[in-house]
């Protein structure tokens, strides 16, 4: 039993509480990307103690609307107080807005408009190469986000500059606000598309599995001369059956009954893990 796997369910409860308290949030993508962010932060060389160290690892949440999961993970790492986030999220005058903002500790760049994170990370990775620093740079994108043309400008530059200190992850949950990604704007063979841009591409069959993600991040670290893309096949709304694989839960606000059902199932799944 992996403690992170259990923690992912505790933090999903935090995310649920943050969203319900704030009166809105992007619950579907939050839940699909939980293990990705949690696994990353368990590995990255970044903490409240070294957050200004030029050698720290960097993470940019390109799919900025999944900030609720980032808040929960940053709180778990000691950057934020989760009870404060729950109390203040989206409230009048709050610092905890619905997208990442770098006035908060642990957040490198502001995001929310899609298709920025990868290019920003190319700049961060180039700076690392210029200064001969060993930090790594990570970004998380949504699969719907890949329709933004700027993503491909960034992908082209990362391949061109052979940025092996850069690793991008796609939260491949196959759903976006209007439905299935392949119906909205087809990606076809994402693996081949990024490989054609000179990336090393890793497919993770279960992007909600911490072990599989760790293996992929290990492989990314060992890959030289190319940036790495991890296609993490996830389940949108992962954690409770009423919201799993449902596009309508992209930013659905659970009512009291749904809140109770989700909380109950999160607890059950956590218990099951504990007894594995």
């Amino acid at each position: 039993m992996n403690a992170l796997k259990v923690k992912a369910y505790d933090l999903r409860q935090d995310v649920l509480d943050i969203i319900v308290s704030g009166g809105g949030g992007h619950i579907g993508g939050d839940m699909s990307s939980m293990e990705i962010m949690l696994t990353l932060y368990s590995r990255m060389n970044v903490s409240p103690e070294n957050q200004n160290d030029p050698d720290r690892d960097r993470f940019v949440l390109s799919k900025g609307h999944c900030v609720e999961t980032l808040y929960a993970v940053l709180a778990d790492k000691g950057f934020l107080d989760v009870e404060e986030v729950k109390a203040q999220f989206s409230k009048f005058g709050s610092a905890y807005i619905g997208h990442p903002h770098n006035t908060l500790p642990g957040i490198e760049m502001n995001s929310g408009s899609l298709g920025h994170g990868l290019s920003v990370c190319v700049g961060m990775a180039l700076a690392g190469k210029m200064d001969r620093r060993n930090y790594r740079v990570y970004t998380l994108m949504g699969d719907g986000e890949l329709a933004e043309g700027s993503v491909w400008e960034g992908a082209m530059a990362a391949g061109h500059y052979k940025l092996d200190n850069l690793c991008a992850v796609i939260d491949r949950n196959h759903l976006q606000i209007s439905g299935n990604t392949e119906d909205v704007m087809a990606h076809h063979d994402l693996h081949a598309r990024f490989a054609a841009f000179d990336w090393h591409v890793i497919d993770v069959a279960d992007g909600n599995d911490v072990d599989q993600l760790n293996a992929a991040f290990d492989e990314a670290e060992q890959t030289k001369g190319k940036p790495t893309l991890i296609i993490a096949n996830t389940v949108k709304g992962k954690g409770a059956s009423i919201m799993e694989n449902k596009a309508s839960w992209h930013h659905h606000l659970p009512n009291a009954e749904e809140y109770a059902a989700i909380s109950r199932e999160l607890k059950e799944r956590k218990e099951a893990l504990l007894h594995e």
């Binding site: 760049m109 920025h116 700049g123």
Partner: peptide, 11 residues
């Protein structure tokens, strides 16, 4: 965006 990433690392 690349310029911003570089700048965020002190450039």
């Amino acid at each position: 965006s690349i310029a911003a990433g570089l700048a965020s690392c002190g450039k």
